[in-house]
Design a protein around this nucleic acid. Sequence first.
DNA 1: TAAAGTGTAGGTGAAAACCCTCAATTTCTA
DNA 2: TAGAAATTGAGGGTTTTCACCTACACTTTA
Lengths: 209, 209
Amino acid sequence: MSIDAIVYVVDDDAAMVESLSWIIESVGLKAKIFTQAQDFLDEYKPDQPGCLLLDVRMPGMSGPELQTKLLALSATLPIIFISGHGDVPLAVRVMKAGAIDFLTKPFNDQVLLESINRALRFDKITREKQQENAQAEAKFALLSPREVQVLQGIVSGKQNKVISSELMISLKTVEAHRASVMKKMSVRSVPELVKLVLTNGVQEHATQD
Amino acid sequence: MSIDAIVYVVDDDAAMVESLSWIIESVGLKAKIFTQAQDFLDEYKPDQPGCLLLDVRMPGMSGPELQTKLLALSATLPIIFISGHGDVPLAVRVMKAGAIDFLTKPFNDQVLLESINRALRFDKITREKQQENAQAEAKFALLSPREVQVLQGIVSGKQNKVISSELMISLKTVEAHRASVMKKMSVRSVPELVKLVLTNGVQEHATQD
DNA sequence: TAAAGTGTAGGTGAAAACCCTCAATTTCTA
DNA sequence: TAGAAATTGAGGGTTTTCACCTACACTTTA
């Protein structure tokens, strides 16, 4: 598990990456350089925190193309585009696709660093949310099919006897499942359970009666 | 209460607004035209659904200035910027500030209408969320201070006896407040209550013991 | 001043949830 | 194939919630 954030720089211009990595490292951040988008794609691990400084125009895979591939991989790494050309439609397109910033050359060092900081903060909270979500999903995966049904009943506020009649099983069995659900989801009260289910995308089908 | 969405057009170019409103009305949407940003600001009601087609450059208040003022009013009306000039930093700035699109002239009618539709869909779901939120807030406002404290206890999964000892009141009083809370919030079960509180921004201070 | 609302607290009893143990059947897996 | 997990069910107990009821002091409002 990596701790430190890495600022990935993907740009085919050797002088540019040199300059960028110098600026980045001057404030104590780690930089990792790629001169081709594909090289980055080959090496990047989705669970590595950081952000991506991405040139728009490059031989081979372009910046926007890389963005598309990362989206397809559902990698949430924040992307800061860097462009020397004033292409408004392109800038708007990549921003709509989720880029966190779009800088035009030449830009101030301070502007760059501010943008990187924003991206890293964004990445951090995104990862924290994903972390929580993954933990909830992991617990949820422990439940047997029957337990999931009972869980849904509980979360939609049904009493055990209602659940038992809907599932055509005995009240005692529902109680058993219910206790098992609380244990596996590691919660001690119904409100905690509801929160866990609601705040993490676990869908609730609200089985109607 | 207004039912139909209105596409507001704010642009100082008479020929442009003429053309825009023609396109908009050709697909059965209502258009409302302003040649000055201030005129729009004077007349717009925040609870009117719709979207805003906004020129960037105008004499008097500019498009981005109007966006800033709307943000300050926490008006969530989606804004589609229209610009004839390729100013990338400006486009990026307004997109980061929440604009839903940024079109550069000349643009295809189809592109415009697609963007308007997206904006209207966005506005619709935003308003639905705000609606739910407002209803929950309204119910929440009915609660007395003591009832709010008890509500927080319930939502954080505390038993009545725990709440009673924390608030230094009798168990019986907590029960009374609890019943009152359920009634005023018009829910029948604790899970429903938790959902209502969680999904609508009602903060829960998790009163620590 | 009277009525309404709030906060307090008690009683009774039913219903529900929670806790434990035990055990039979089936189904999955090492 | 044997053991583990899932599903089912039951007995018997405690604890908690819930639904009624009553009551009184205090504040705000009509």
